[in-house]
Nucleic acid binder design. Structure first.
Length: 217
DNA sequence: CCAAAGATCTACT
DNA sequence: GTAGATCTTTGGG
């Protein structure tokens, strides 16, 4: 099995609600300074819109020092500090200036288990499924911190590649986003169904049907 | 200026 | 299930 091609700028330049589900099954490739590669298959993401109507989006009130890379060119990272402790990583979408991005919530580790475990500081007796089943854990497992804010994923030490060739199409579920208090009714979370590697179970998984977008909680 | 909330995670009861 | 860590951003006086 080989990895698909590195995703190009045109992929990220589309509406983030189209990009988000297309990222499920894609491969995150992190090449460490030593040349060692960490691979994770994306299984859980959330879209954050830039049109000013998404109250949970960091871009909701326009550009600030923290979120400026959200308004930059697509195909780059938006990394921010969460709760003063953790790093969370997004992929910037849509044309430059839009302020839209997709939060990476969980990956299924494919290679570099031992290194991810070391980066996470996990004891030996903790399950592999805890390696990257949350946005903060994912960033730590892939050795991504705030210094990666604005970095391109079109080439370089962090890349997003298409699904493995011959891989079956993932069964994608859609639900409300988690960990937020505003805009919880917007069904902007996309995840692989029945994957043991995703974050918390969705509040209201729709049976493959999207909840209406445009309404707020 | 001060207070509070926040796209989280871990440890402990 | 709840508390605490830790700090940036935001909103009110």
């Amino acid at each position: 099995m080989q990895l698909g091609p590195c995703l190009r700028r045109a992929f990220f330049e589309r509406p983030c609600l189209q990009v988000a589900p297309d990222l499920i099954g894609a491969i995150l490739v992190r090449t460490l300074p030593s040349g060692f590669r960490l691979l994770g298959r994306i299984v859980d993401v959330e879209a954050y819109l830039g049109d000013g109507r998404d109250p949970a989006s960091h871009s909701h009130r326009g550009p600030t020092p923290r979120n400026r890379s959200m308004f930059g060119p697509p195909g780059r990272l938006y990394a921010y500090r969460s709760y003063g402790i953790h790093t969370c990583v997004n992929l910037v979408c849509e044309p430059e200036g839009s302020g839209a991005a997709v939060l990476l919530r969980a990956v299924e580790p494919l290679a570099g288990f031992a290194e991810m475990r070391r980066l996470r500081g996990l004891p030996r007796d903790r399950a592999d499924r805890l390696l990257a089943n949350g946005p903060g854990k994912l960033a730590q497992a892939l050795d991504l911190d705030l210094s990666w804010d604005g970095a391109s994923v079109l080439r370089g030490p962090v890349q997003v590649r298409g699904p493995r060739t011959g891989a079956p199409r993932p069964d994608i579920g859609r639900s409300g986003r988690v960990g937020i208090s505003k805009g919880t009714r917007l069904a902007y979370r996309f995840f692989e169904r029945r994957s043991p590697w995703t974050g918390p179970a969705p509040r209201a998984t729709t049976a493959g049907r999207a909840a209406p977008a445009g309404a707020d909680s």
